[in-house]
Amino acid sequence: MKLILIFISASLINNFVLTYFLGICPFLGVSNKTENALNMGLATTFVMTLTAAVTWPIYTYILVKFNVPFLSYVAFIIAIAALVQFVEMYIRKSSPTIYRAMGIYLPLITTNCAVLGLALFMVLREYNYIESIIFGFATGVGFTIAMLMMSGIREELEFADVPEVFQGVSITLIIAGMMALAFMGFAGLIRG
């Protein structure tokens, strides 16, 4: 039951993009076409789930055990960078089709603050191993949902007559604000 709550909370109610402002760069940068947004979302979900699976043991069995949790930022960022590199190498060898779709987004994910944020929140909320993996996956799903919605709106926006000074980043941010308001409607789903 708790796992379902974590899933709904991380993907909808506390959506990383719209309530914690994590992963705004790809959210603004790669959301101009639905296809790109979907691929970016899938790649990020994949990396996030793996990140949770890898950083949890590193934190629990290495950093806490040797009493050096202050090294966690350095350890996490190295772990994420190495992980992304391995995933890229593996996909390139095993499946060229997926590599063509996801490949160019993978290096971007290393500097996506949502991935590091995920590791930090996981530690802060003291999830156990299974909960962490569910949390990582749900966060990725939430990111994909936000990306897909934004790209759908932006494709329609190309036909709209936006005032010149608002074009580009500005109107995208205002739309994101409206989406954040809409997502507040999910807040009543879970108590506590």
């Binding site: 719209l18 402002f21 000074v165 608002f166 500005s170 941010l173 994101a176 604000g177 409206m178």
Partner: peptide, 22 residues
């Protein structure tokens, strides 16, 4: 003070800077 307000203020400030520069 809600997340939505942050997006709105940021969006309008970007537009304002664009306007002045133009």
């Amino acid at each position: 003070i809600l997340p939505a307000g942050a997006f709105f203020v940021f969006g309008f400030l970007v537009a304002l800077v664009n306007y002045i520069l133009r």
